[in-house]
Simulated assay, not measured.
Amino acid sequence: MSVFCCCVQASDNEDETVPFSKSVQVPKQVKVLDKGKKLAIKIVNVKEFDDKFVEIAELYNNQVENYTTLKKCLSQLNEVNDSDNLTSCIEKIEEKYSNYNIQIQMKGYNFNLLVEPNEDIPEKLQQSQELMKELSRATKVLIGSQTKLGGMVFSLSQKKEEMTEKIKELNPGYLDQIRLVENLEENMKNIDKAKQLSTEYEEEASEVLRNIAHIAGVAI
């Protein structure tokens, strides 16, 4: 779910057209998006552009949620199985539960931990199965959505000058223009950062997938 920050209100005075002296304007400090944090956007008061920013934020924030899930699953798998990484985790599961037929099944970007027989499965082995399912879902989302997000950000970046002019056209008050264009600048910087971070999430998810494929003996 996106975080939508409406930090700007329309001016009460529609005739507000006299600019402040440039010498007293203080450059706005833009808070840069951090890895693993949700993307908060600000209104630019042009519906078609605001809708695009919301769409990007929703897609990115869904990635953040799945990235958090990916990290949580990897950490908990290691904790449950007293392991250091995914490969040693599976090795320890196979060793500890040798009376079960343990297999990693992989189909496309989907993978899971198969256990036979599937009755009376020990609690920690069941927990490992559930964590693998969650890890698979998160990995698939992160890999599948990165290209879409990158394309959306690139497309919007090409329209920056057009957006600036449209904001000024639909918001004639000078102070409104200053604030809304600042919001645009902040949004553009943060969606560019979101695009970069999205690539990092995808790279980590791809590394998980490569490890799973290696363990399963599957070529990808």
Rank of each mutant, 00 (worst) to 15 (best):
T147V: 13
I121A: 00
N81W: 00
G150R: 02
S157E: 11
E200R: 00
E185L: 05
K22M: 14
L86I: 15
S98M: 03
Q177N: 13
V8P: 05
F53N: 02
A213H: 09
Y201D: 00
A205K: 00
E116Y: 13
L156M: 08
E204Q: 14
A57L: 07
V218N: 03
E16K: 04
M1I: 15
S2L: 03
K133A: 08
P172G: 06
I121R: 01
K159C: 11
P19G: 14
D120W: 06
V44P: 09
G173P: 10
N118T: 10
L70D: 00
F49K: 02
N101Q: 08
D82M: 07
Q146K: 09
A194F: 03
E16G: 00
I220Y: 15
F53R: 00
K42W: 06
E207Y: 14
V218I: 12
Q196R: 06
A194M: 05
E116F: 12
K189I: 14
Q63R: 06
K92D: 03
C5T: 12
R137Q: 10
L114N: 07
N171A: 13
T69I: 10
K72L: 06
C73D: 07
I143K: 00
N13V: 10
D176L: 12
L113I: 07
L149P: 12
E185N: 07
V3Q: 07
D34N: 13
S198K: 04
K72I: 01
K107H: 09
V141M: 01
I43D: 05
L86T: 10
K96Y: 04
N13E: 12
V80P: 05
S75F: 11
Q127P: 08
L149V: 04
V80K: 01
M152Y: 08
V18L: 14
A40L: 12
M152I: 03
T147A: 14
K22S: 14
A219F: 15
V46Y: 06
T164F: 05
S75Y: 14
L156P: 01
A10E: 06
R210A: 11
P27F: 04
A216W: 10
E95K: 10
N99R: 06
P27E: 05
K193C: 04
I102P: 03
K124E: 11
E204C: 03
D82L: 08
K37T: 03
Q127A: 15
I93P: 05
M152R: 00
M1F: 15
I178G: 04
M163E: 03
F53P: 02
S145Y: 02
T87S: 11
D12H: 10
Y201W: 04
E200M: 06
T87A: 10
E203Q: 13
